[in-house]
């Protein structure tokens, strides 16, 4: 008797769950133009906005005074598994006669980058961030090497330090 009850209850539960599944796909089918998530890329190139979480490229944000946060500590260079970051620093002497390092060029080779994000994660001063740009194709390989800091940019001075 119990077996018989199990037989029928199992059958009806199965049918109900199958109908639920068909309901989900059916709903998507009939509301399809609204729910489409794929992007028509070459056509909507002008209006396409990527998501915040999208890992397009590594960038170094600059503020309005053309100042960045990079202290040229080279932690990103050490952490990069592909060796796609090279920090070129220069020594400057400040007013008190102290020598200190300053960022000259943050060279980022996007051709070798695997977009793991270790540089961004480990940066102690949060100088790096993800950018949403993704059209990276170039005709020659050396164009993949980008200088992330702008021309003539300086280190952002923290308030109260020094």
């Amino acid at each position: 008797m119990r077996g018989l009850i199990n037989y029928f209850s199992g059958m009806f539960n199965g049918i109900i769950s199958l109908l639920k599944g068909m309901g989900v796909t059916g709903k998507y089918f009939f509301t399809s133009p609204v729910t489409i998530v794929t992007q028509q890329y070459p056509e909507n190139r002008k209006t396409l906005e990527m998501f915040d979480a999208f890992k397009g490229e590594v960038t170094m944000p600059h503020d309005e005074n053309n100042e960045h946060k990079c202290t040229a500590c080279s932690i990103c260079q050490i952490n990069c598994p592909n060796g796609s970051i090279e920090i070129v620093s220069r020594d400057v002497v400040n007013d008190e006669g102290k020598k200190r390092k300053e960022l000259d060029k943050h060279l980022y080779n996007i051709g070798m980058c695997s977009f793991c994000g270790l540089c961004i994660k480990t940066c102690p001063s949060n100088a790096l961030a993800w950018g949403q740009e993704f059209e990276h194709s170039m005709f020659t390989r050396d164009k993949f090497v980008k200088t992330l800091n702008n021309e003539g940019s300086k280190l952002m001075q923290k308030k109260g330090v020094e």
């Binding site: 998507y28 399809s32 489409i36 794929t38």
Partner: peptide, 13 residues
């Protein structure tokens, strides 16, 4: 097309 619409895609276009 039907499969694409059920999977929130556009299908051949």
């Amino acid at each position: 097309k039907v499969c694409a619409f059920m999977q929130n895609r556009v299908g051949p276009n």
